[in-house]
């Protein structure tokens, strides 16, 4: 540009055109982190999110095996393995080359395992080990704590140290990877943001710790699913219905309730050893609702006391009625 001569009309239009072009390109660099509205890869082998699956008539495929296994014992890794073997073994859930997501409950960083706030590291590590034995290509451990950083939560719960030896990988959440998913079966939720890795995974293994929760009553497998979504606090406004709705899309293929230690008061964050009881039990089931329903008995409650379990049965997510379930109890 020659600044000494007056600006010609042609040049002026030239510059104007360039500036407009720049302004059109500029929004690409917008600071706001855009969420991928429609994720490219949602459908996986086992999870059909777009079609509404028919309500299961027979909730469990094989009639010979028990629906739920409750195993009590001192060695937590042994009882975890026993519980999974009892309901058909890990090979019934994990096929060769599968991508597995293991979802423990790590609700906050800064609590060691004995406070019964986070899932026991031995239970998680055993599941990861079994998955690799069944031929899983990769096993990810994933949870987002509400207090502290994810890495801090993995480390403080003791899972990072033990599960990494067995080959587990830890997911650090990225804001961009939350995808909007519609809930065709949802009664209250129409769409919500869910972490993409969970949607892409072949197998989703839910390993909650059984503990007290002020609003929901108890935190169990169905509520543990809340860890993989965004805007968690809005779930609380209609907690039971919304948790049941979440479970229509995020399906746990295997649920292992860690009741080796349970928190009976001041949940979900705890912090006092006086509130911890030691049932030393692991409950395993292919169905979240069934596993949760049995876990309530440890707190001297029934499944009817917990709203989301009741709604789960009502919406056809599984069977909660203890009379209709085939239960195997083992003491090691």
């Amino acid at each position: 540009m020659n600044l000494n001569s007056p600006l010609k009309r042609r040049d002026f239009l030239h510059y104007l055109f360039k500036i407009i072009l720049l302004a059109l390109v500029a929004p690409v660099f917008s600071c706001e982190n855009k969420v991928r509205e429609e994720p490219t890869v949602i459908k996986s082998k086992k999870q059909n999110t777009s079609e509404t699956p028919p309500p299961p008539k027979k909730p469990f495929p094989s009639q010979k095996l028990p629906d739920v296994a409750i195993v009590k014992g001192k060695d937590f890794s042994v009882i975890t393995k026993k519980a999974i073997d009892e309901i058909g073994g890990i090979k019934a859930f994990v096929k060769k080359g599968d991508k597995v997501i293991v979802k423990p409950n790590l609700c906050m960083a800064g609590r060691s395992p004995e406070y019964a706030v986070t899932t026991h590291p031995l239970v998680v590590a055993t599941v990861v080990k079994l998955c690799y034995q069944a031929g899983a290509s990769k096993v990810f451990v994933f949870d987002v704590p509400f207090n502290g950083t994810p890495i801090g939560a993995y480390k403080d719960s003791g899972i990072y140290k033990i599960a990494r030896k067995v080959g587990a990988e830890f997911i650090i959440p990225l804001k961009r990877r939350y995808a909007r998913v519609s809930f065709p079966q949802g009664r209250d939720i129409k769409a919500w943001l869910i972490y993409q890795d969970v949607l892409e995974a072949d197998v989703f293994i839910n390993i909650p710790i059984a503990k007290h929760h002020s609003l929901a009553g108890l935190t169990l497998g169905m509520k543990n699913v809340m860890g993989v979504i965004k805007n968690r606090s809005q779930i609380h406004w209609n907690i039971h219905q919304r948790i049941a709705d979440l479970n229509t899309v995020i399906k746990s293929h295997l649920t292992i309730v860690d009741a080796t230690r349970i928190l009976v008061r001041h949940g979900p964050t705890g912090g006092s050893l006086k509130d911890v009881r030691h049932p030393k039990t692991v409950i395993a089931s292919a169905n979240v609702v069934a596993a949760d329903s049995i876990a309530t008995t440890l707190f001297k409650k029934t499944w009817k006391d917990i709203g989301y379990i009741r709604l789960g049965q009502e919406m056809g997510l599984g069977v909660a009625d203890l009379k209709k379930l085939k239960i195997s109890r083992i003491n090691l």
């Binding site: 906050m108 800064g110 509400f146 207090n147 929760h213 002020s214 609003l215 606090s233 609380h236 406004w237 209609n238 907690i239 001041h266 979900p268 964050t269 705890g270 912090g271 006092s272």
Partner: peptide, 26 residues
């Protein structure tokens, strides 16, 4: 506060309170 104005349950502050004897009670 939502339970006071909207007459809806919202216990987020109580849930996240990390102190061992919760400083927020319901």
């Amino acid at each position: 506060c939502i339970p006071y104005t909207e007459y809806k349950n919202c216990t987020v502050c109580e849930e996240v309170c990390p102190v061992s004897k919760k400083a927020i009670i319901l």
